[in-house]
């Protein structure tokens, strides 16, 4: 794998059943490329949480994944409502997810903290009313 591999996924809104398909595909690709299992695991969990968030909060969006020999870069861009208070959103247990999402096993307020925990770098760029872009890096 000399050059970076770039993958893009359009995440469809309000389709909770399909949420996670992109992460599942990335996981398979990473495995087949021989990326070490610990890195595969971190990317899978972080991206899956992010993908779920995009479906729950942001009416979908676009995920770009760049696989390089030394790192995996994930960019999750949505045109959702934005995050008013990032510190609050980063607190374990804080969630604005509606009840129907909670009944599906999510909305525990662990999404963003999980994403930070499983990545080596994470930045959140958010503009109220315009959208949020989350950039995450997992080092190999």
């Amino acid at each position: 794998m000399a050059e970076a591999i770039r993958l893009t996924y359009e995440i469809s809104p309000d389709d909770f059943t399909r949420a996670g398909e992109a992460s599942s595909d990335v996981k398979k690709k990473l495995k087949s490329l021989g990326v070490p299992p610990e890195a595969v695991r971190k990317v899978s969990i972080a991206m899956y949480e992010g993908e779920i968030n995009m479906v729950i909060h942001a009416k979908g969006g676009l995920i770009t994944v760049e696989i390089s020999p030394d790192q995996i870069l994930m960019i999750l861009a949505d045109k959702g409502p934005g995050i008013p208070d990032i510190d609050q959103a980063m607190q374990a247990g804080w969630s604005t997810a509606p009840n129907e999402i909670r009944s599906l096993g999510f909305g525990a307020g662990m999404g963003l903290p999980n994403m930070k925990k499983y990545t080596d770098e994470m930045t959140i760029d958010t503009v109220i009313g315009k959208g949020t872009t989350i950039t995450m890096i997992v080092k190999i």
Partner: peptide
């Protein structure tokens, strides 16, 4: 709670749950 499973699970081989939706399978997969 799949979010909690994702947060706290490490090297588990069995997941017990009463939740019945496709995200259970995806969580197990991840």
């Amino acid at each position: 709670l799949m979010s909690d499973v994702l947060a706290f699970s490490k090297d588990h081989s069995i997941l017990l749950t009463g939740l019945c939706n496709p995200q259970v399978i995806r969580t197990a997969e991840m």
